[in-house]
Design a protein around this nucleic acid. Structure first.
Length: 737
RNA sequence: GCCGCUGUAGCUCAGUGGUAGAGCGCACCCUUGGUAAGGGUGAGGUCAUGGGUUCAAAUCCCAUCAGCGGCUCCA
């Protein structure tokens, strides 16, 4: 005779087992109507689930009109929508489409499926699928759960010849023959996923309607009570995915969709997606001529065009000024370094596969030739980026290409240089170039250092994922006692940057060591202290932060800044990392008060992360409409006709004399066209100058985003006002006549 | 790297086996116009690259390269 405890603490007793719906009804009919599912002792279950024991129960409800749905409600709706989409696809393509996994995601859901040989699923089918989904939702069929004994259920699935479902069921029953290779846990509440918790004796199925008559799927649940509760759903896109995320396994089609309680919310989501696409930094970057990628130069290599270079330069000056205040010193170092340097730092050969191939010295080639190495062998060694090639194995056939006794170990392979993948080895050498007393510490070496990494070609993306990029890097060589203070200094820098740029939506991730793992170097006591310092510093920021055990670098804990852009994607930008390893590897030391040598601890930090990625994110953040201080062209002077071109030039030179970036549109277009072009170029201020303005030595000021000019003001007053706005790096356009 | 889609003028794109197209941009001319495109003329292409099929290929096939969307990865 269960006693149900509700979230507000009230208890209700029932004489007999009750369903979730009955609990809701006993509270109120409105609640029962809005109910989607229940949470029993923290576990989400169907509304029809029977509660036969004392439990705490919460009702998950659809949102009231005008309110946003809870995360749980959205997940239920989307997971249920995954079933509806799968049914719709089977109706459109055929019942022989094999379903695999269909979990909800942050913005919707997907369903992985295998399309049989000879059939095709393409975006051409989307209209038909969407129409069918709408019908199923309109039919408002009940989600009906039923269970079968494990053996029966399994036999049934086997008879349906869907090996993916059989695998799901076997894993659910705890007799998984296939090993889930991915390290990620299985999705919660996935359609078609493990039907119950592993080890269970039975399997659960859901019919969208009447079992045996309507569509069914092996599923753990829970679901909304009926398809009508889904509201609005839509298939979005297709992608490929591998079974279990394993690329040697079957390739499946991943069909993405999304669902919302109401059509209005779905429409709003689609509108946001369009807005996000409109802000794509690759599109805006081309339109505003900010950067260029040329395939002859190379994939993933950014050419900063004059306008983009202005933005980067402004950001660098901004951070440079902050660094000066914090006592940093600037250094310059080359983009390459000897291979031995990276053997010392541990980058080579350990991270060889994500670096550009070494630049081989002529002498080294001669030496190889001198020891009887054939041309073919040398070529393989020189071009051998892959471990297999270097080991003398043909990549395709796997056959040996070089006699095993002729294979040279990695460490002796090549003498030459590497394009640097990180700046720290160079900075370590600068630190080591002279003796240091504890009195000198911390030594803070800063450099906008360009590094090169061999990102996989499929990963490259505009400015945000590239092969050559410039970090706003610095290394702080300090004593262990100085760590907390230095971390605080780094964080205040990052905070200042985000505040100035108006980036409010960010969170902090503190990567800690996994105490059970042996891959972390350094003493546990040092780690504890450094981790405590990172956590304290993160907490002091006053934004959400998470502690993530096991996510530390092997050499020390770290703090990452994750910024959310308008598309809802998260970007890891700034980072602060404590490093206990570098001192050892490079044998760094300082003389302590005891007159003995001590190891410095190194803090790596890069508030922007990389200039390329940061600018890419900024372009999307501002949709190309930068605040005045960052704008490549801050003012454009638009003469009404040729008659006022001279005055327009005069205005521009006055602005340039005051260090304001100003251009003149000297074209013979009419003023309407000039305004349009300047607006398209997102120039913050347009100064319209005609005979009236020339006469009174004033300018008619039109601010970006407004419909007309806001009136005339004296030229000198405008110069002074915009100068102040730029110098203070204001995020809004504030100059007004 | 893997899978799918795409590659035509500086940009955005049309062109499904038979003479290479449009809009924007660019150059020049007319227009001298007060707030989101005034009009005309013209230049500009080895249809990504390399093979193949065909009397004939931008178009069909194969390979390579690059871009896009995913997957996997990111010290």
């Amino acid at each position: 005779m269960p006693t149900i405890t509700l979230p507000d603490g009230k208890a209700k007793s029932f004489d007999q087992p009750v369903t979730g719906l009955e609990v809701a009804q006993s509270i109120g009919s409105g609640l029962a109507k809005a109910a989607l599912a229940i949470k029993v002792d923290g576990v989400t279950r169907d509304l029809s689930a029977v509660i036969d024991r004392d439990a705490s129960v919460a009702i998950i409800t659809a949102p009231k009109a005008g309110q946003a749905a809870s995360k749980e409600a959205l997940e239920l709706i989307r997971h249920s929508a995954a079933h509806v989409m799968a049914e719709a696809i089977q109706d459109v393509i055929g019942r022989d489409v094999l379903l695999a996994y269909g979990p909800p995601t942050e913005t919707g859901f997907f369903y992985d499926m295998f399309i049989p040989e000879g059939k095709k699923l393409s975006s051409d089918h989307f209209d038909a699928i969407n129409a069918r989904m709408a019908e199923i939702i309109k039919e408002d069929r009940r989600f009906t759960r039923y269970e079968q004994r494990g053996s029966e259920g399994l036999a049934r699935l086997k008879s349906e010849a869907n090996k993916y479902k059989v695998d799901n069921a076997e894993r659910a029953l705890g007799l998984a023959s296939s090993v889930y290779r991915g390290s990620k846990p299985a999705f919660q509440g996935e359609a078609g996923g493990g039907a119950r918790d592993p080890g269970s004796q039975s399997l659960s199925f859901y019919s969208t309607g009447v079992p045996g008559t309507n569509w069914e799927d092996l599923c753990r649940g829970p679901h909304v009570p009926s398809t009508g509760r889904i509201g609005a759903a839509r298939v979005m896109s297709l992608a490929s995915a591998y079974w279990h995320g394993d690329e040697t396994s079957d390739r499946l089609i991943r069909v993405y969709g999304t669902a919302f309680p109401t059509q209005a919310e779905l429409d709003e989501y689609l509108r946001q997606k369009e807005e996000a696409a409109r802000r794509d930094h690759r599109v805006i970057g081309r339109a505003l001529r900010l950067f260029h990628i040329d395939e002859t130069v190379g994939q993933g290599l950014i050419l900063w065009t004059p306008r983009g270079a202005v933005i980067r330069k402004e950001l660098q000056s901004f951070i440079g000024a902050e660094l000066k205040k914090q006592g940093y010193t600037e250094v310059f170092t080359p983009h390459i370094g000897g291979l031995d340097l990276y053997k010392t730092s541990g980058h080579f050969p350990y991270y060889k596969d994500s670096q550009f191939a070494p630049i081989v010295e002529r002498n080294a080639l001669d030496a190889l030739a001198g020891c009887g190495c054939s041309c073919a062998e040398m070529l393989r060694r020189v071009e051998g980026v892959s471990a297999r090639l270097a080991a003398g194995i043909n990549e395709r056939t796997g056959a040996p290409t070089i006699a095993p006794d002729r294979v040279i170990p990695d460490e002796q392979l090549i003498d030459g240089f590497m394009l640097r993948p990180m700046n720290c080895p160079h900075h370590a050498k600068i630190f080591a170039s002279e003796p240091h007393s504890y009195r000198d510490l911390p030594v803070r070496l800063a450099e906008f250092g360009t590094v090169y990494r061999w990102e996989q070609s499929g990963e490259l993306n505009g400015m945000t994922r590239v092969r050559g990029f410039t970090q706003d890097d610095a290394h702080l060589f300090c004593t262990e006692e100085q760590i907390p203070g230095e971390i605080q200094g780094c964080l205040s820098l990052v905070k200042a940057i985000f505040a100035t740029l108006g980036m409010k939506d960010y969170r902090v991730r503190v990567g800690l060591r996994d105490k059970d793992s042996s891959k972390f170097t350094g003493s546990p006591e040092s780690w504890d202290k450094a981790e405590a310092a990172c956590i304290a510093a993160a907490r002091s920021l006053g934004v959400t932060f998470s502690q993530e055990p096991g996510e530390a670098a092997f050499y020390g804990p770290k703090i990452d800044f994750v910024v959310k852009d308008v598309i809802g994607r998260e970007w890891q930008l700034g980072t602060v990392q404590v490093d206990y390893q570098m001192g050892n590897r490079f044998d760094l030391s300082y003389t302590g008060p005891d007159n003995k040598p001590h190891r410095p601890v190194v803090i790596h930090r890069a508030p922007f992360g990389s200039m390329e990625r940061f600018c890419g994110v900024l372009i999307e953040h501002f949709a190309g409409a930068f605040p005045a201080w960052l704008s490549p062209e801050q003012v454009r002077v638009l003469p009404i006709s040729e008659k006022t071109i001279d005055y327009a030039r005069e205005v521009a030179s006055a602005l340039r004399a005051a260090d304001v970036r100003a251009g003149v549109d000297e074209g013979n277009d009419r003023i309407q066209a000039k305004v349009k072009v300047a607006a398209d170029d997102k120039v913050p201020y347009m100064l319209i100058v005609g005979p009236r303005d020339a006469e009174s030595r004033s300018v008619s000021v039109r601010v970006r985003g407004t419909e007309r000019d806001l009136g005339a003001m004296p030229l000198e007053a405008f110069v002074a006002a915009i100068k102040a706005e730029i110098t203070e790096r204001r995020s809004e356009l504030t100059v007004r006549p």
